[in-house]
Simulated scan of single mutants.
Amino acid sequence: MTRIDAKFAALKDQNRKAFVAYVMAGDPDFDTSLALVRGMPGAGVDVIELGLPFTDPMADGPTIQLAGQRALEGGMTLDRTLELARRFREDDDTTPIVMMGYYNPIYSRGVDTFLEQARAAGIDGLIVVDLPPEEDEELCLPAQAAGLNFIRLATPTTDDKRLPKVLTNTSGFVYYVSITGITGAAEAQAADVGPEVARIKAASDLPVIVGFGVNSPDKAQSVASVADGCVVGSAIVKRIGDGESVDDVLAYVATLAAGAHRA
């Protein structure tokens, strides 16, 4: 059982929804990013999504693209991202970390080497947005054999014919993308999300977490109420990009977490 599996089992026992927070590793710099990640569990974050900076983030909107650019310009690399996870694990051995990014840096490192390093650093799961199920032998199956969850995205365009393929070999949780498009492009609507979450849950026993378009405590509550939890990324990353202090960003994160936990 991974930390992700253990976390969702505990949340289910507590009849509580999950709050997942995304930050870009190294944005705006290593030390600030580490301080933010270290402060997230205390702010109510159940699962941390740690973005791996990449030069061509095709699924991300301007806010997260800029965060990746800031991180890369500050010298953030795959090695430094893994180091950030290792430093976090010095004080926290229970909060799950999901690394979210693209396949190129992993492929360049070599899958076996990357998986060994990621597990040693305390990474619990992967979301790799540009590897479809047809490429499971590339990373998904080796990752799961190495003890990491491989979390897949389902979207509004994932129809009933495609859904079983998407769910095959998925573990940890299913990430439902609430809108068609890039991150930060529109607001999620619970009325639209609810039936889609129900459709996925009818086909899988995994928790379904909704991301994209969740940007306020009320929105976190409404979206989490029709799913097993929600993810907030762009709204947090924007505040980091605006230069807010670590304390102010974490205070905002706490309001989002409280919203999700009210669901």
Rank of each mutant, 00 (worst) to 15 (best):
K7N: 05
G122L: 07
Y102A: 10
G211D: 06
P53W: 00
Y103D: 00
N104D: 09
Q189F: 04
A145F: 03
P105H: 01
Y103L: 13
A188Y: 03
Q117D: 15
V232D: 01
V111M: 03
T158V: 10
P133S: 11
Y252R: 08
A227I: 07
T170Y: 01
M1Y: 02
A254W: 00
D136Q: 14
I240P: 01
F173L: 02
I200T: 03
L141S: 14
V174N: 05
L167S: 08
A85E: 03
V253L: 04
D60W: 11
D5K: 14
T158Q: 03
A10H: 05
A257P: 12
V223L: 04
A25Y: 04
L206W: 07
L167N: 13
R80K: 15
V226Q: 07
Y102M: 09
H261V: 08
E138T: 15
K238V: 07
T32Y: 07
M40K: 12
G44K: 04
I64Y: 01
D46A: 13
D247I: 06
S108C: 02
L148F: 06
V249E: 03
A224G: 08
I151C: 09
L66C: 07
V129K: 02
T158H: 04
A118Q: 02
M99N: 01
I209E: 02
R70D: 03
K165M: 02
L139F: 12
G184V: 12
D60R: 14
V214Q: 01
P41H: 04
P156C: 12
G44V: 08
D112N: 14
G110T: 11
R87P: 03
M100I: 09
P28D: 06
R16V: 04
A35K: 15
D124C: 13
I236A: 07
A188L: 05
R109N: 00
D79H: 08
D92T: 10
E187H: 13
M76R: 07
G241C: 09
V174S: 08
A43K: 11
G39I: 11
I179A: 01
A154F: 05
G44I: 05
A257L: 10
I209M: 10
G122M: 06
G26V: 10
P142Q: 09
T168R: 15
G61P: 06
A260S: 12
A203N: 11
G39C: 12
E49G: 13
S108W: 00
P164T: 06
S204M: 08
E138I: 15
A85R: 04
S171V: 12
R38D: 03
G125D: 03
R3F: 02
E83G: 10
S225H: 02
G181R: 08
M58T: 15
Q144H: 05
V174C: 11
Y175R: 14
I240Y: 01
V231K: 08
I97K: 10
R162W: 07
L115D: 02
A120M: 00
L250M: 11
G147M: 11
D13H: 11
G172P: 07
R86D: 00
P57S: 14
A85Y: 02
Y107M: 13
G101W: 03
D56C: 09
M24W: 01
D91K: 15
D13N: 15
